[in-house]
Design a protein around this nucleic acid. Structure first.
Length: 111
DNA sequence: TCCTTGACGGAGA
DNA sequence: ATCTCCGCCAAGG
């Protein structure tokens, strides 16, 4: 039988792995891009996580806002709408910013 | 195919 | 704590 030069997926599977990991981050906790990449089995690909999240539909159910950078900061310009949106969504889970940073010590998700 | 761009991270200075 | 520089690598021009 003729083999279709591709799988039925039109998108790279790594995105699905990332979606899965992000969906597991519990409410009230956060994970870093690098952490998500590692848990997804994609070490050294933190940027792929950011790329994937940037393509999510506006009405996604994925808790993308629980993903922040390794410094505990939100990876958007502080004067952007996106920054405020993420900050508010986190605040709803009692994750507040101190000096622009989340206290990873107490809020980082440890699987 | 080559070059640039990132919702990144870590090591130095 | 802040700033640079460099490694990583998929996507899009």
């Amino acid at each position: 039988m003729i083999k279709i030069p591709n799988n039925n997926e039109h998108k790279p599977s790594y995105q699905e792995k990332i979606w899965h990991v992000v969906s597991m981050i519990p409410k009230g906790k956060v994970a870093t891009y690098g952490q998500v990449a590692e848990l997804a089995g994609l070490p050294q690909m933190a940027r792929a996580v950011g790329r994937t999240l940037s393509k999510l539909p506006k009405d996604t159910e994925l808790p993308w806002f629980r993903v922040i950078n390794a410094k505990g900061k939100i990876s958007f310009p502080v004067d952007s709408e996106a920054y405020l949106r993420q900050k508010d969504l986190l605040a709803e889970e009692d994750i507040t910013l101190l000096n622009g940073k989340v206290n990873l010590k107490s809020h980082q998700w440890i699987p």
